[in-house]
Amino acid sequence: MTNSLIKVQVKDFDVGLEYQALVQDNTADGAVVMFTGLVRDFNQGHKIRGLSLEHYAGMTERALLDIVTTAHQRWQLGKVKVIHRIGELLVNDQIVFVGVSSPHREQAFEAAQFIMDYLKTQAPFWKKELTHSGQRWVTANAKDTQAAKRW
């Protein structure tokens, strides 16, 4: 898909630049929806200092491409960008960016939500939370699994 870009990277991203890439040379789309996920300081009953994110290179990118391909098949989309960070992240660091352009806002909103719901449940990332009492692996969240079922 020439209008899609998927990145798994250690370095941070600039939301303003990502927005510009979605609208550059894109006069057909009237809607852009973006989501940025951040490391928060609390999860599943634990106070968090940061996260360590791991992935399996090649497998992760393929899973993200499958998710984006499905979104393109279900909705009329222009450009799609998915960036997911790996490595050591601190509270308030950016983890993920999903940007979607479409001729229509409803489709852009739905596609962005679909991508995030499936990314949370289908993409092979492993998260280890860094807490004040040590490290712990993050288990699957039933809320995320339920959200993905609606699609």
Rank of each mutant, 00 (worst) to 15 (best):
M1R: 08
T2D: 15
N3G: 13
L5D: 14
I6H: 06
K7S: 13
V8S: 11
Q9S: 04
Q9I: 04
K11C: 11
D12F: 10
D14P: 00
E18T: 07
E18S: 08
Q20N: 09
L22T: 07
L22K: 05
V23G: 07
V23A: 11
Q24H: 14
D25F: 03
A28S: 05
G30K: 01
A31C: 10
V33Y: 09
R40H: 08
Q44S: 08
G45S: 08
H46M: 14
K47L: 04
K47N: 04
R49T: 01
L51C: 01
Y56A: 09
Y56P: 13
M59R: 08
A63N: 14
L64K: 03
L64Y: 05
I67L: 13
I67R: 15
V68M: 14
V68K: 13
V68A: 09
T69E: 14
T69Q: 14
A71K: 03
H72W: 02
R74C: 03
W75F: 08
Q76W: 00
Q76L: 02
L77K: 00
V80Q: 02
K81T: 15
K81H: 15
K81Y: 15
V82T: 09
R85L: 10
R85P: 06
E88Q: 13
L89T: 00
L89C: 03
N92H: 10
V96T: 12
V100K: 01
S102R: 10
P103N: 07
P103E: 03
H104K: 03
R105F: 00
E106D: 12
A111E: 06
A111H: 03
A111K: 02
M116Q: 03
D117M: 06
Y118P: 02
Q122H: 14
P124S: 10
W126I: 03
K127C: 04
K128Q: 13
K128N: 08
L130A: 08
L130T: 06
H132I: 02
G134D: 07
G134N: 06
Q135G: 07
V138H: 00
T139S: 13
A140K: 10
N141I: 04
A142S: 01
Q146A: 14
A148V: 13
K149R: 11
R150W: 02
W151P: 12
